[in-house]
């Protein structure tokens, strides 16, 4: 059986908000290491990879591996009933038909109990090759969100150019063009406000802004975001949170 108690419902609520528009149904794979999810969007352009490590729960118990097939829209509706500060407990039997969710207020004067039907999802698991990326850019998550939102007003695509001079986000569309260049900065008092660029070679890739804007729904989960790029491979966008991560992969646009 699975029993996983999370001190802050907000983590799960924000995570769901960050993935439910990309993915409709997905298996939550539970093992003794924690709860993970891997799913592609319908168009096979983007992939979501979530890990909530066992040590992020207190307590966490999972006797044998379980795949909980969940409609993310339904889970999101159930989680709307949880307050951000509620303690949330997930429970499932072995070979379960239902997932049980309990929301307790901090002072334990209110306990809400929900049961959600599970579904059978036949989902292929993709092998993601270990990649030593040529460019690793860490920046404030809010900055990345703003850049994606601003440039999506100009064009459907953005070209990200990482070089020793900085990282440049550029878009060109019918109304004109625009770009934002970030230089490396160092803010020792607020590391999450710094921008760092590690580069082994220059990288230039073009991506659909629609997906990037969607990824930035994860902004409330982390102060910083890391973009990892190599020429001709998918972009990795990672939000690290306490007790896990939310990663998005996005296939580039390529020359016809």
């Amino acid at each position: 059986m699975l029993e996983a108690r999370l001190a802050q419902a907000a983590v799960l609520k924000k995570t769901l908000d960050a993935i439910k528009e990309l993915v409709t149904d997905a298996n939550f794979d539970c093992s003794d290491g924690g709860i993970s999810l891997q799913a592609m969007d319908n168009s096979h352009v983007a992939l979501v990879s979530l890990l909530l490590r066992a040590d992020g729960f207190e307590p966490y118990r999972c006797d044998r591996n379980l795949a909980l097939g969940i409609n993310l829209n339904s889970l999101s509706k159930v989680l709307r009933s949880a307050q951000n500060e509620d303690i949330i407990t997930l429970k499932a039997a072995d070979d379960p038909d239902n997932l049980s969710l309990t929301f307790e207020s901090q002072n334990q004067d209110r306990i809400s109990e929900y049961e959600m039907k599970l579904m059978d999802i036949d989902q292929e698991h993709l092998g993601i090759p270990e990649t030593a990326y040529a460019a690793v850019i860490t920046m404030p998550a809010a900055e990345f969100q703003r850049i994606c939102r601003d440039l999506s007003g100009i064009s459907e695509s953005v070209t990200i150019d990482a070089s020793k001079d900085g990282v440049k986000f550029a878009s060109a569309g019918d109304i004109g063009n625009g770009s934002v260049t970030l230089k490396q900065t160092h803010n020792p008092e607020e590391p999450a406000l710094s921008t760092s660029i590690e580069l082994s070679e220059s990288v230039t890739l073009t991506f659909s802004l629609k997906y990037l804007v969607n990824f930035t729904k994860a902004t409330p989960l982390a102060g910083a975001v890391t973009l990892q790029m190599s020429n001709d491979v998918p972009l990795l966008v990672e939000y690290k949170m306490e007790g896990g991560y939310l990663r998005y992969y996005l296939a580039p646009k390529i020359q016809d």
Partner: peptide
Amino acid sequence: MKQASLSSFFVPQ
């Protein structure tokens, strides 16, 4: 430019 598919980079395990 055209959108590449992730399936050409990541293969089912």
